Amino acid sequence: MKIEGRTFIVSGGASGLGQACVENICRTGSGSGNVAILDLNEDLGAALVAQLPSGTARFFACDVLETDSIAAAVKGTMDWIAQTGKPLGGIIPAAGVGNPSTILDRHGEAFSLESFDFVVNINLRGTMDLVRQCLVHLAKTEPVGEDRERGVVIMVASCAAFDGQMGQVAYAASKGAVVSMTLPMTRDLARFGIRCMTIAPGLFETRMTSVMPKKLATGLQSVMEFPRRAGKPEEFAQLVRQVIENPMLNGTVLRLDGGLRMPSKI
């Protein structure tokens, strides 16, 4: 699918990997598109819109924990699309949290179920809620090209879905579920000409990893194969663009991690 002339919805789009996707879609060459930026941080969202080419982005305050908040953001996006005439082309749910905690602490006490629910509700339920609400509109767009494609869903998992470390029970569970949804969602959406892909990044330079203890970040880099460094957000966004543009990418999970296989602990 061509990015040019289409509109994409990116949650968590005001920072980190989501922001990199927004900037790539709005700025890269002649194949630029429009982006609806969904995020809780209105200041960051407004600042990002101001930095992008005029008219290519619109910010919508959105809490992915709240179905009504997502619905309002999606409605606002569709109203904007009606004004621009650039139909919906895809959904990139990039909002996510970590909040590490071992299931039992050093005293043998169980971790908080509220903490578990918080991570799973944002990373899994929030992803599904946004995707399902957007798909209703994506399925009604006019198909394009020889394949009669309508668009693509690009979900964000993590290498923790495959080799989660100590303290990542909630995070690994949420991202593992996203991985597991990829193929059945692909099969559900095939009849509509909509593809579904998931990217599982390793260690990347984001606001989430910026608060990571230096010892942990250094340790993770040391067990990467090549390159031995954190990924750059623009490298993630580059892969997102390639997924959008290559119609044969469908129904699978791509690890983007420099060959990282996380040990139990650092």
Rank of each mutant, 00 (worst) to 15 (best):
residue 86 K to Y: 08
residue 92 I to W: 03
residue 67 T to M: 05
residue 71 A to H: 09
residue 82 A to F: 00
residue 61 A to S: 15
residue 90 G to C: 02
residue 85 G to T: 06
residue 67 T to S: 13
residue 80 W to H: 03
residue 85 G to C: 05
residue 81 I to C: 11
residue 77 T to K: 08
residue 75 K to I: 07
residue 73 A to G: 11
residue 92 I to K: 05
residue 73 A to F: 08
residue 76 G to F: 05
residue 71 A to L: 07
residue 61 A to C: 14
residue 62 C to D: 10
residue 86 K to V: 01
residue 92 I to P: 06
residue 67 T to Q: 12
residue 67 T to E: 14
residue 82 A to G: 15
residue 68 D to F: 00
residue 73 A to K: 06
residue 74 V to Y: 11
residue 76 G to C: 06
residue 62 C to I: 10
residue 73 A to Q: 07
residue 84 T to H: 03
residue 91 I to V: 15
residue 66 E to S: 14
residue 86 K to N: 13
residue 83 Q to H: 10
residue 67 T to D: 14
residue 70 I to D: 10
residue 70 I to L: 12
residue 88 L to V: 07
residue 88 L to E: 01
residue 74 V to D: 12
residue 88 L to I: 10
residue 65 L to N: 15
residue 88 L to H: 09
residue 81 I to R: 12
residue 75 K to P: 05
residue 88 L to D: 02
residue 69 S to F: 09
residue 71 A to Y: 01
residue 84 T to Q: 01
residue 68 D to Y: 01
residue 65 L to I: 03
residue 85 G to Q: 04
residue 89 G to D: 00
residue 80 W to L: 04
residue 77 T to E: 10
residue 87 P to F: 03
residue 76 G to D: 06
residue 93 P to S: 07
residue 64 V to L: 09
residue 74 V to I: 15
residue 65 L to R: 15
residue 94 A to M: 07
residue 80 W to F: 09
residue 92 I to V: 11
residue 69 S to A: 13
residue 91 I to A: 11
residue 77 T to Q: 11
residue 74 V to P: 09
residue 68 D to K: 14
residue 93 P to H: 09
residue 75 K to S: 14
residue 69 S to T: 11
residue 79 D to F: 03
residue 89 G to W: 04
residue 85 G to E: 02
residue 81 I to F: 08
residue 62 C to T: 14
residue 65 L to T: 15
residue 91 I to T: 09
residue 76 G to Q: 06
residue 87 P to E: 01
residue 70 I to M: 09
residue 73 A to S: 15
residue 80 W to N: 03
residue 82 A to E: 14
residue 71 A to W: 00
residue 70 I to Q: 07
residue 87 P to R: 08
residue 64 V to R: 03
residue 61 A to R: 14
residue 67 T to N: 09
residue 89 G to Y: 05
residue 70 I to T: 10
residue 91 I to K: 03
residue 80 W to D: 01
residue 85 G to K: 06
residue 79 D to S: 12
residue 72 A to R: 15
residue 81 I to E: 05
residue 79 D to E: 15
residue 86 K to E: 10
residue 80 W to Q: 02
residue 72 A to F: 08
residue 64 V to I: 15
residue 63 D to E: 10
residue 92 I to T: 02
residue 92 I to F: 14
residue 79 D to N: 10
residue 83 Q to D: 12
residue 79 D to C: 03
residue 89 G to E: 00
residue 71 A to V: 05
residue 94 A to F: 02
residue 91 I to M: 10
residue 87 P to N: 05
residue 87 P to T: 04
residue 76 G to K: 02
residue 73 A to T: 07
residue 69 S to K: 07
residue 72 A to D: 15
residue 73 A to P: 12
residue 88 L to M: 08
residue 78 M to L: 14
residue 85 G to I: 03
residue 92 I to E: 00
residue 93 P to K: 12
residue 90 G to M: 01
residue 84 T to L: 02
residue 78 M to F: 12
residue 80 W to I: 02
residue 87 P to W: 06
residue 94 A to I: 00
residue 71 A to C: 06
residue 79 D to V: 11
residue 61 A to E: 15
